[in-house]
Amino acid sequence: MSHEQQESFCEKLSGELRHFRWREIFTWKLLRMLAMGQGLSALICGTAVTSQYLATEFQLDVPMFQSCINYVLLCLTYTTALCFKKGNENILQILKTKWWKYLLLGLVDVEANYAVVKAYQYTTLTSIQLLDCFILPVLLILSRIFLKTRYRIIHYVAVFVCLAGVGAMVGADLVSGRDQGSSSNILLGDGLVIISATLYAVSNLCQEYIVKNKSRIEFLGMVGLFGMLISGIQLGVLEHMEVGNIQWKWQTALLLGGFAICMYTLYSCMPVVISMTSATAVNLSLLTADLFSIFCGIFLFQYTFSGLYVVSLLAIMVGFIMFNTVPTPSQSPEPVSQEAGQDNQAVEHDDERQVGSAVDNQEKCVIDSNLENLPAKNGHILRSVKM
């Protein structure tokens, strides 16, 4: 970057900062989004801790079986809810017109989960943490192309600050000697992480579009249906022996149940947070999930604490707040869902009633003014009309 380009970049950034109303940044909406984003990170931490207990204490490594349980729960609740919808929101109407789209979306979501879990067998934890951030630039590019999202310089700076926080976390892992994982085939493992991050970006982008333009129930119901079918087939092919050899104990059932509850809650709540912000903002907030897992590991698995973890947490929080200080509107108008249309119709009826009442009041005022101009001998007529 030349000196002139650096000056232009600094001028644009300083110009955006000058137009900020700093007192209006920390609103209840921002604090609510921040709290909900960290709640999602806590749920991801719950899935990580339960999976680690299953792998270390009970030698149980069945990621596809765990994912299949989650998709079954989604299908039982949200897909069933679609069966009772009417009109275009009914499951039969959706399957007639968009079944192949949701089939591809379910395939993308299932394989994204499977690829990142499979990567632990070939590469190190440090590589996974670093390359998993590849989802952010992919989301920025895809959102700009398909959703026509307009990003400003402050948004790119916020992403850079969050990535710097991830770098501090990885540095703390290296200092504390927590660079776990296999290194049998690092190239394959890193490739799986990049593939997983790309698939997650596509899934999250589709989720943002469907949630903001259709409905949350439709997205979760279709992902639950096709995710259950795809993961069930993949489970029968790849993990049928491992599932058949499970030594069922109450601890194993409890951990599997805990994982399923955390994952199901994560899938149910994430569309709500995305509808309030964007998929990119949510993924920035989810960068703290590894930190939460580390903090839990300090007490549960005797990890070594480092001050860089606190620095990483603060950097990610600052980047998330910076990203949400400036809105990222879409250039193209968003279609209105049926539910939103009903709400708008109700508002229009209210507006019509208000306009009608205003017209009536104006007519009444005209009549009153005309009556008041009548002679005094017609006062009895004036009183009768006003009554």
Rank of each mutant, 00 (worst) to 15 (best):
M1R: 08
S2C: 05
E7M: 05
E7I: 11
L13D: 12
S14M: 15
F26W: 13
L30C: 02
L31E: 08
R32G: 08
A35H: 01
M36V: 13
A42P: 00
S51I: 03
Q52T: 14
L54R: 01
Q59S: 11
L60K: 05
L60V: 07
V72Q: 12
T79A: 12
T79N: 09
T80N: 05
T80M: 10
T80A: 13
N88Q: 09
L92I: 03
L92M: 05
Q93E: 07
K98N: 03
W100K: 11
L104V: 03
V110L: 02
A119W: 01
Y120E: 12
S127M: 08
L130S: 15
C133K: 06
F134W: 04
F134H: 05
V138W: 08
I145C: 00
L147H: 01
Y151R: 05
R152P: 12
I153A: 15
I154Y: 00
V157P: 10
V157W: 03
C162E: 02
L163Q: 12
A164M: 14
G167T: 09
G171V: 10
D173P: 08
S176T: 15
G177Y: 03
Q180H: 03
Q180D: 06
G181N: 14
S182K: 11
D190S: 03
G191C: 07
V193G: 01
I195C: 10
I195M: 15
L205Q: 05
Q207H: 03
Y209P: 05
K212Q: 10
F219P: 00
F219K: 00
L220D: 00
G221M: 00
V223E: 05
L229H: 02
Q234D: 06
H240Q: 08
M241Q: 06
T252A: 07
L255C: 08
I261Q: 01
C262V: 04
Y264H: 11
L266G: 00
L266F: 05
L266V: 00
S268G: 02
S268N: 01
P271V: 03
V272Q: 04
L284S: 04
A289V: 05
S293L: 10
I298F: 11
L300I: 04
L300F: 01
F301Y: 07
F305Y: 14
G307I: 07
A315S: 15
M317F: 06
G319W: 11
F323V: 02
T325M: 08
T325G: 07
T328C: 15
E334K: 04
S337N: 00
S337W: 00
Q345S: 09
A346V: 09
A346Q: 10
A346I: 09
E348L: 13
H349T: 15
H349C: 14
E352S: 13
V355K: 06
G356D: 11
Q362W: 10
E363K: 07
E363W: 05
K364R: 12
C365A: 14
V366Q: 11
I367E: 14
S369N: 01
S369Q: 02
N373F: 02
L374H: 13
N378P: 10
G379M: 03
I381L: 14
I381D: 15
L382A: 07
V385G: 14
